[in-house]
Amino acid sequence: MPEKRTEKIEHYVAPLDETPLHATDNVAEDVQPLSLWAEAWRNLRKQPLFIISTILIVLIVFVALFPGVFTQTPPNQNCLLANSDGDPVPGHPMGFTLQGCDVFSRIIYGTQASLTVGIFATLGALIIGGTLGAIAGFYGGWLDSVIARLGDVFFALPLILGAIIIMQLPFFRENRNVWTVVITLTVFGWPQIARITRGAVLSVRNADFVTAARSLGVSRPAALVRHVIPNSLAPVIVVATVNLGIFIVAEATLSFLGIGLPPDVMSWGNDISSAQVSLRSNPSTLLWPAAALSVTVLSFIMLGDALRDALDPKARKR
């Protein structure tokens, strides 16, 4: 500083006993090792959102696997037209449908179809979208462009419109079952997973640890499988979990439009759809399966939300 000053600057030194000098960069030895997944698990365990959704999902899966445990009433037999739209009576806590079937029993037995569609459509989208997205992101170049355009093409066909086209084809119309719905949802669901995976892989691909692995002699495909993919999983898992819920809703919507599951398959979508005629006289036949569906979907979306918070890449860097 050019100016001259007269006042004296005090030279202060803190007392040593109050400011002890620590070794530079010492390692704390008494800490338990904690992997990223273990750390995420530790965060998750404390989240009420995660606890509630997990309990619900476990319950729902159990219902789907063993419906007989929850109700003794067979869902399709003993439907008496005398009971049509009947109110709840002991043993039939949710009343009866228009056909006089037990609503509760139908909900229990309908779980399987909805859950199967959700799980397998998610798996399908994960396998196709995940593979294509990872390849596109990691190898880049023309492969990336082709896959990106292909994804755009499917994106340009909104899910329900695409499903309408597919499901009215003779092949699908004649073989309508759970699997045709799964295929339809997969075909129009993969581009989203591909985009997410591609983005995640792209952000990891140029990380120094991948370059380091390459210069250690790890081949490109091995680097992709061992380093890039495990580090790109988090956002994909989150989106896939949320999508599972969305697919269940989509199945119900398709069934409502009459192009989803065939009417003889017991599913929440079909039950809601067939209950619409008696909405004004007996709204509970519609509301109960709708509630079952919504709670299921909500569980998956909440689980996805909780996972997102726990696996947030921004929170991972300390």
């Binding site: 005090e10 803190a14 400011t19």
Partner: peptide
């Protein structure tokens, strides 16, 4: 250093 002023002066 570690949240404290350990020395100050000209």
């Amino acid at each position: 250093y570690k949240g404290r002023v350990v020395e100050s002066g000209p």
